[in-house]
Computed example of a mutant assay.
Amino acid sequence: MQRRQFIQSAIGTIATLPAWQPARADAWPSRPVRIIVPFTPGGTTDVVTRLVGNELGKSLGQSVIVENKPGAGTVIGVDTVAKAVPDGYTFGTIANSFTANKTLVKNLPYDSAMDLRPVALMGLSEHVLTTHPASGLKTLADLKKAALTKPGTLSYASFGNGTSAHLSGALLCQILGIDMVHVPYKGQGPAMADLIGGQVTVMFGNWPEFRGQIASGKLTALGMATLQRSQFAPDVPTLAEQGAALESNSWQGLLAPARTSDAIVQRLNQDVNRALASAAVVKTFHEGGIVSKAGSVEQFAAFIRSEEEKYARIIRAANISVG
């Protein structure tokens, strides 16, 4: 009897508790804001997040804490954001993998459209297709000829299965009608090291990290993966100029849990855009070869949809899986 009364009392207490309500924009933020980065520290995504986060802290009047939560191809970190209380105190940085995973990963623990909402695009690092000098390749035509002469003997490295470098390599093979072996690595650093050492033939890599190796002669640039000449590498021909009109890059943007209020999302979007225009970010982006991508919430949402469609086409055409 006492046990039944206790349970009924507990149920009654729970029923009278106030329902969770979104934070009001005029009262937000009243405590530190957390940004989850689903990558290890030190990479471009982490650096961009911390740089922008530092500026956000000034405009928000609160500390912005960056928490690295890598694993499962960014799924663990993104899922943490999707399941966070949507009170305006937890956000997440995403990159290309977020849009590729929608097609690539079976049984995602979150619904990318229903559980998360776009906030702002931040930056973009253009990719350059490179090779090691000993390969003897100088142009895209050289690569195609070599691949057709010895099918299946050339290889391309990537940051890992399902990454932008992997999918862009697969797309290049489709466009040129060639066959190259994909060699995935756990990050760009190890892949670059083996590329320099001649263990793999080519690789799509972030211009900011690869430009020094190209300038020193340790790597040869076959072309920029941009449709127009890059402001950071105007002397390097594009792949489009050489007959392969593809764009490859690494980008970073912010998401929020789906039920985060419109007012807070719009406020943070405006603050991110202000951060991107700040002297510190403009200087660092320019020196680092990163393109600023300020814009509205709606523009970022459209960008995400276009990236999802692009990667879905590549993945299905190449029959790529991560199992």
Rank of each mutant, 00 (worst) to 15 (best):
M1S: 14
Q2T: 15
R4T: 13
I7N: 07
S9L: 11
A10P: 00
G12K: 13
T13G: 04
L17Y: 10
R24P: 09
A27W: 09
V33F: 14
V33A: 12
V37I: 10
F39H: 08
G42K: 11
T44Q: 14
T49H: 04
R50E: 15
G53K: 00
S59F: 10
S59R: 08
Q62C: 10
E67C: 03
T74H: 03
V75T: 15
V75L: 03
I76N: 14
G77R: 02
D79Q: 09
D79R: 02
V81G: 07
A82G: 14
A84R: 00
V85K: 07
Y89R: 05
S97Q: 13
F98I: 02
K102N: 12
K102H: 13
L108F: 11
D111A: 07
D115I: 09
L116M: 11
P118A: 05
V119H: 06
V119W: 06
S125T: 09
H127E: 03
V128W: 09
H132T: 07
A134T: 05
L137A: 01
K138L: 09
T139Q: 06
L140Q: 02
K145I: 09
A146M: 03
A147Y: 03
A147Q: 04
T149W: 02
P151L: 13
L154H: 09
Y156E: 10
F159V: 01
S164L: 02
S164D: 12
S164T: 08
A165D: 13
H166C: 07
H166A: 13
A170C: 01
A170L: 11
L171T: 02
L171P: 00
Q174E: 13
I178W: 07
I178D: 03
M180R: 06
H182E: 12
G189I: 10
M192K: 02
D194G: 06
G197A: 14
Q199V: 10
M203K: 08
R211P: 13
I214K: 04
T220M: 04
A221S: 12
A221W: 07
L222K: 05
T226K: 04
Q231T: 12
F232A: 01
A233N: 09
V236L: 09
P237E: 06
L239S: 01
A240K: 15
E241R: 05
Q242P: 01
Q242M: 04
A244L: 11
A245N: 09
E247I: 11
L254C: 05
L255C: 02
T260H: 06
I264V: 14
I264C: 03
V265P: 00
L268P: 08
L268I: 08
Q270Y: 06
V272S: 01
R274C: 03
R274V: 08
A275T: 10
A280L: 08
F285V: 07
H286V: 12
E287H: 14
I290L: 15
V291T: 12
S292D: 12
A294N: 07
V297K: 14
V297M: 08
E298M: 10
Q299M: 01
R305C: 01
E309M: 11
I314W: 05
A318K: 05
N319T: 07
I320L: 15
I320H: 02
I320S: 01
